[in-house]
Amino acid sequence: MSTTTADRPPEFQDMHESIRIMGFWIFLSTDVGLFSSLFAVYAVFRSRVALGPTPHQLFAMGPVLTETLILLTSSFTCSLSLYSARMNRLRGAVAWLIVTLLLGASFVTLEIREFVADVTAGHGWSHSAFLSGFFTLVGTHGSHVTIGIVWAVMLALQLAMKGLTVTNRRKLYTFALYWHFLDIVWIFLFSVVYLSGMA
């Protein structure tokens, strides 16, 4: 108990809030298990295309690269939001948070468009085990991002209403963890699903 409060980042100064941050890290580690299982399903089902398209035939590289760059940028803006909060700049924190959620929304929009295009081209997920695995893996990530957007909206509201309180700082920190985690998941999706599928 020797460390003084000054040594800690603001999110950790309150004991209870620091415990909540740890709990959130643990939650993220269970999500690692969730996505690992889905990746395992995808890896096993990749070649089981039945009469449907192969990964090579299905993927279009352009939109996927755009989605990736958008998500990476949103990860950056999210980190700036947390940075602003730590500099005690409420406006900066809220503004960067809104930029982040807008980027996230455009990512989801692009992804939905891609899905709709696949389905209208007759590549719905019931046509092969591969397609089922692909849509579920990418869709699970997409639904995580969507949940993140809803969360960000509520968080922005709370920041605007109550300012940088102890609780709100922690909430912003955990949101940032969540958002960056989704970015990591996407990097693996991009590499394992899309890039390997194109290669």
Binding site: V41, S126, S128
Partner: peptide
């Protein structure tokens, strides 16, 4: 994941563990 995928098969016509469409 295992339960969820079975649910997708049953309710939404996915082909993870079915006999048809190379499910496994």
């Amino acid at each position: 994941v295992a339960l969820g995928l079975t649910m997708l098969d049953r309710l939404f016509g996915a082909s993870f563990f079915t006999v048809a469409h190379q499910g496994m």
